[in-house]
Design a binder for these strands. Structure first.
Length: 193
DNA sequence: TGGCAGATTTTA
DNA sequence: AAAATCTGCCAA
């Protein structure tokens, strides 16, 4: 089956549904170093100002402005002094919700991903939000990019995603009671089962 | 295999 | 001061 880039309209759906629909889709990044890609196997929904764990709950700031922008664009932020996290904006400009991509199954450009990470094991390359950004070469400069075209986009390669489970989100200290993290059951590339 | 400390810098 | 994290080290 030929790969199809997800159209902008894909991102305009309730954020929880977008998170589930993103599982199995393929994130691709092209840089001077080469091209790499991975299938999304784990994601978390962040549901705007009413969700205290969502960055937009503290208003629009220079850091979070991309989440307040149009759907289908990237929201990338820097965390813990050394990692980046990659999100997909899922609502129109002014409605600040997003899906955090938490883990990928590496598909293309495996050597490049290994080099960037300094790790050999395939299952350790992108099994976490910080790891996948390092492996894919996603940094500050990707913040706000339109995900419907190069150099950073998401495509559908027609693979059946598999069984989806919902669990509480990880790495947060508030609103931990909601099962807004979804992943492919039993998948070895997920950050935490 | 699981828990914990340390790394490191941006943000409000 | 805390952060939507990761790694290495230690114990069991």
């Amino acid at each position: 089956m030929r790969a199809k880039t997800l159209p902008k309209s894909f991102y305009l759906q309730p954020t929880l549904e977008a998170a589930r629909e993103l599982l199995g889709k393929v994130l691709v990044h092209e840089t001077r170093e080469g091209r790499c890609a991975g299938a999304i196997v784990e994601a978390e929904a962040y549901l705007g100002p009413a969700d205290p764990a969502c960055h937009s709950a503290r208003g629009c700031t220079p850091r979070t402005s991309a989440m307040f922008g149009p759907e289908g664009h990237a929201y990338v932020y820097f965390i813990y002094g050394m990692y980046f996290c990659f999100n997909v904006v899922t609502q129109p400009a002014g409605v600040a919700e997003a899906v955090l991509i938490r883990a990928l199954e590496p598909l293309d450009g495996l050597d490049l991903m290994r080099r960037r990470r300094g790790v050999e094991r395939l299952s350790a390359l992108a099994s976490g939000p910080g790891k996948l950004c390092a492996a894919m070469g996603i940094t500050r400069s990707c913040n706000g990019l339109d995900l419907t075209r190069p150099p950073l986009w998401i495509e559908d390669r027609g693979a059946p995603p598999g069984e989806v489970v919902w669990r509480p989100r990880v790495g947060i200290n508030v609103a931990t009671e909601h099962p807004w993290r979804c992943y492919l059951k039993g998948n070895r590339f997920v950050s935490k089962q």
